[in-house]
Design a protein around this nucleic acid. Structure first.
Lengths: 332, 332
DNA sequence: ATTCAATATGGAAGCGCTTCCAGTTTATTT
DNA sequence: AAATAAACTGGAAGCGCTTCCATATTGAAT
C-alpha cells in the first residue's frame, strides 16, 4: 500500500504538498496538483484514514448510536439517517446500545474514541444527566426522539402528547366512550407523553380515565397481545383500544382475534408511528404518523450546519404528528 | 485527555511497560502492573483507539456491510450479528451499501480503510469476481446469504432450493394444483434457487409449471400486491400463491383482500423467511423458516476462530429451512 | 528596477501508541 | 558460588499523516 511518502517522491514534491492536495488546500499551484494527482493514480494511492484521524483529530464520519438495530421504527430511522449522511458525503458508523445503560455508554465511548466528528443518538437508557454532561465535551451530538430541556436545541422529537391526543380524539369522534389504552414502558418519556395526550382528550370530552383500562406494555408486538388478554381476563369492557405504537396494535389485534373478535366491528384499534407495515395489516391500521424521515433529515442538517459549517439552515426541533385514517376503527 | 506518556511518568515506569499492561502482555511483574493500573485510574486514562490502530494495524472491531439497514430480514440479521460480536467482546462497525455496486464497494473500502480485523458482508450488488479478488487481500471476511463456489468456505447460506421445494410440496399436499408464484428479483441467487425448488416440487407431482403464473417481484411488500393484481388482470386462475419472502406474501394478501377474496378460503398463501411479523398477520402466515440467528452466530464463530484464534469450532456453511405451518393455507 | 504582499513550497515536529532489540534483574540448576 | 535460563524493563524507531513555521517564488504596484 503506497504512502504519501512514495507519492511525494514520484511527484518530486514535498510531503506537505501532497498533503495539501489531499486536503484540497488553497495555495497549491495547478502544476504541483497535477503532478501529485498523476503520481497518486500511478501508485493507486489510498489515504490511510487512521493516520489522518490521528494527526488531525477528525474523521469525516458521524457516529450513530441506536438502542436497537431492528424493528420498524428503529430500522426506518437508522436507514433514513444513514441515507441523509451519505447524501452529504459523510460516512455513518453505526453501533447499538441495546437499551442497557452500560452498553449504551460503552457504544458512546466507542464512537467518541473513534473520533467521530459528531454523533446521532437514539437511545433511552442513558440518563439525562449523563447527556447534559456529555454536551460539555468535545464531540457535538444530537438526540432523536427525546427532549431534554437543558439541551433542547440538540434534541429532535415528536409532539407525543399531541399524537396521543389526536388518536383519542378521533376515537371519541367516532362515538367511542370506553377506550382501553396499551402504553409503552411508562419509564420512557414518549410513552408517558402519549398517555398524557390520551387523557387530555378524554377529559375534554368529559370521559373519565379508568386505570383498569390501562395496560403497560413494552412496545414489542407480543405485549399488545398480552395487553388484550389482560384486559379480557379482568373483565373490562371497551369498544376501542388505543396503542402507544403500531407493533403493539398489531399484537393486540392478534390477541383479539384469538378470542374470535371481529375487527373493527366488535372492537376498534388505533396505533402510533405509521410504520410501513400498518398498511398491510388486516384491517389496515388507523394510526398516527411519525415523520421519521423528516426528523432524520433535520438532524443531519443540524450536523452539517453546526459541525461541518456547510449551510445556513433553519432548524426545527419539534415535529408534528398526524392522524392517518384507515380501516381499523369503526363508527360506534 | 491523558496519554500513555503521562501514565508512565506517574507510575514511574517506561512507555513500553504501560503499553504492555494495556495489552495484557505476559512478562509484566505484578508490581509494575499495579502501579500502572493505579496511575491509569488516577489520571482517568482512556487509550486512544486511533493511535493503537495506526501503530498495530489492528482495531478489535469487525466491519458489517449490509445492503439495507431496514426491513425484517436485514434488521434481524444485523441485530443478531451485532449481538454475537458483542458477546465475544468485539465491536461492530456497521455501514450500508444500498444494493448499489458503487456504494457497496465504497462501504467496503471504508471498512477496510478503518482497519477492521474482519468483515461480515450481506450484500448483493458486488460481483462474485470482486469478492473472489478481495479474498486474496489482507482483510478476512465472510459472506452471508450467498454462495460463491470459489470461496464457499467463506460463505454462509440457506438451502434455498430446499426451501422453495418445501413450500410447494406442502401446498401440493394440501391439494393445490394451480399455484401462482411471486418471486424476488430473478437476478438474485436466492430468488432463482427458491424458484428452482418450487419447480422441482411441481415436477415431482407431475404438475406443469406455467409461466403465466409467475410474477417477478422485488422482495418489497408492494410488489406482492402488484403481483396479485397482475395475475388477476391476466385472468389466470390459481388456488394458492407461493411467495419468495414474507413481505411479498403480506402484500399479496393485502392485494387479494382488495378484491374481496377470503383468505385462506378462496386463496391460500405461503411465505418465506419466517419474519417476526408473520405471526401477527391475519391469517397467521404459513412460511419457511430461515434460521437467521444461527447463521449470524456461525459467521461470528468463523471470525473468532479464523481471525481471533479463539476457539476450535466446527463450521457449518449451509443452513436448512423448515416449514412453519400456520393458518394461511387451507386444504383444497 | 525596486518594494511589498500574496502565493507557493519544503522541513520538521508531533499525534499516541506498538514493538523490536538490547540490557538488566531474578530465579533455577548444578 | 558460578552458570544459565527465564522473566522483566527501557530505549528508540516508526505507523502515515497534518500542520506550523520559515523560506522561496511570483506578480502587481510604485
Amino acid at each position: 500500500m503506497a504512502t504519501i511518502y512514495e507519492v511525494s517522491a514520484l511527484a518530486g514534491v514535498s510531503l506537505s504538498s501532497v498533503s495539501r492536495v489531499l486536503n484540497d488546500h488553497e495555495h497549491v499551484s495547478k502544476k504541483t496538483k497535477e503532478k501529485v494527482v498523476a503520481a497518486m493514480n500511478e501508485l493507486n494511492y489510498r489515504p490511510n484514514t487512521i493516520a489522518r484521524s490521528l494527526a488531525s483529530n477528525r474523521s469525516n464520519s458521524v457516529g450513530v448510536l441506536v438502542s436497537e438495530l431492528h424493528g420498524p421504527f428503529f430500522g426506518a430511522m437508522l436507514s433514513s439517517v444513514e441515507l441523509e449522511l451519505r447524501k452529504a458525503g459523510k460516512h455513518a458508523v453505526i453501533t447499538a446500545g441495546h437499551s442497557d445503560e452500560e452498553s449504551e455508554i460503552n457504544g458512546l465511548d466507542f464512537l467518541i474514541d473513534r473520533k467521530c466528528d459528531a454523533l446521532i443518538l437514539l437511545v433511552d437508557a442513558i440518563s439525562d444527566d449523563y447527556l447534559i454532561k456529555l454536551s460539555k465535551g468535545n464531540t457535538p451530538f444530537v438526540i432523536l426522539n427525546r427532549n431534554i430541556s437543558e439541551i433542547s436545541d440538540h434534541c429532535f422529537y415528536l409532539d407525543n402528547e399531541l399524537g396521543g391526543y389526536l388518536a383519542a380524539k378521533y376515537l371519541i369522534e367516532q362515538g367511542h366512550k370506553e377506550i382501553a389504552y396499551i402504553s409503552g414502558p411508562l419509564t420512557k418519556q414518549d410513552s408517558t407523553e402519549r398517555l398524557t395526550g390520551h387523557k387530555k382528550a378524554l377529559a375534554e370530552a368529559n370521559i373519565s380515565f379508568k386505570e383498569s383500562l390501562l395496560y403497560e406494555g413494552d412496545y414489542l408486538t407480543k405485549s399488545g397481545r398480552d395487553g388484550i388478554n389482560y384486559l379480557i381476563k379482568h373483565k373490562t369492557t371497551f369498544t376501542a383500544v388505543a396503542c402507544s405504537n403500531d407493533e403493539m396494535a398489531s399484537g393486540a389485534m392478534r390477541g383479539a382475534r384469538d378470542h374470535k373478535w371481529l375487527i373493527p366491528e366488535q372492537c376498534s384499534f388505533i396505533g402510533f408511528d405509521n410504520a410501513f407495515f400498518t398498511e398491510y395489516l388486516y384491517p389496515q391500521l388507523t394510526t398516527i404518523n411519525f415523520p421519521v424521515n423528516d426528523m432524520a433529515k433535520m438532524s443531519t442538517q443540524w450536523i452539517l450546519k453546526n459541525v461541518y459549517k456547510q449551510k445556513e439552515l433553519d432548524i426545527i426541533n419539534m415535529f408534528i404528528p398526524e392522524l392517518i385514517e384507515r380501516q381499523s376503527v369503526k363508527k360506534n
